[in-house]
Amino acid sequence: MTRVSINFNLKKDSLGQIHTLEAVTATMIMVSVIVFTVQATSLTPLTSSTANAHIEAQMQTIGQDMLNVLDHTSSAHASPLKQDIISWNGQEFSWNGTAYCSVNTKNSNLLNSSTSGILKEIAVPRGIAHNVLFIYIDRSGLPQGTAYIYNGDPSDNAVSVSRKVLLSDFDLSDPISFMANTGIPDSDPSSDFYNIVDVKLTLWRM
Rank of each mutant, 00 (worst) to 15 (best):
S177F: 03
T61V: 01
T47K: 14
L111S: 10
S160G: 04
N107W: 02
G183E: 07
V197Q: 05
I62D: 14
V38T: 13
V35N: 04
S155V: 01
L133Y: 03
F134G: 07
G152C: 07
N104T: 10
T25P: 02
I85D: 08
L142A: 07
V33Q: 04
N157M: 11
T61K: 07
Q144K: 13
L172E: 08
N7I: 12
K200A: 09
R3M: 13
T20Q: 13
D156M: 05
P189H: 09
G63T: 05
T47Q: 15
V69W: 02
S32R: 00
T182V: 08
F93P: 05
D65R: 12
S116W: 13
I176Q: 14
N7S: 11
V165I: 05
E56D: 13
I29N: 02
L70S: 06
M206Y: 11
L111N: 07
A158R: 05
D188A: 07
G97F: 09
F36V: 12
M30Q: 09
V199L: 09
T50Y: 10
Y150H: 10
A51Q: 12
W95P: 11
N104Y: 08
D13V: 03
T47W: 10
I6V: 15
L201A: 12
V165S: 02
K106N: 15
H54R: 11
F170K: 09
A99I: 01
N107I: 04
Q144C: 06
S94F: 02
G16K: 11
D138L: 02
A78S: 15
I85M: 06
D71H: 03
A23H: 10
R139I: 06
T37V: 15
S190H: 03
P154S: 03
F170W: 06
H54G: 09
E121Q: 14
S162Y: 02
L81Y: 03
I86G: 01
L46Q: 14
A78G: 04
L142Q: 07
S162V: 01
F36H: 02
E121P: 03
K11M: 02
A158K: 06
T105L: 15
V132F: 04
I62A: 15
N112Q: 14
F93W: 06
W88A: 10
W88Q: 09
A180E: 14
A76D: 14
T61G: 12
P185A: 13
S113N: 04
I128E: 06
L15P: 00
I34R: 00
N107T: 03
G127Y: 08
F193V: 07
M28N: 03
F170V: 07
L133D: 08
V132G: 04
F134I: 02
S113L: 03
S87H: 05
T44F: 10
V31G: 09
N52A: 11
R3V: 15
K12C: 00
H72V: 01
L166Y: 08
Q58V: 05
K106F: 14
L119K: 08
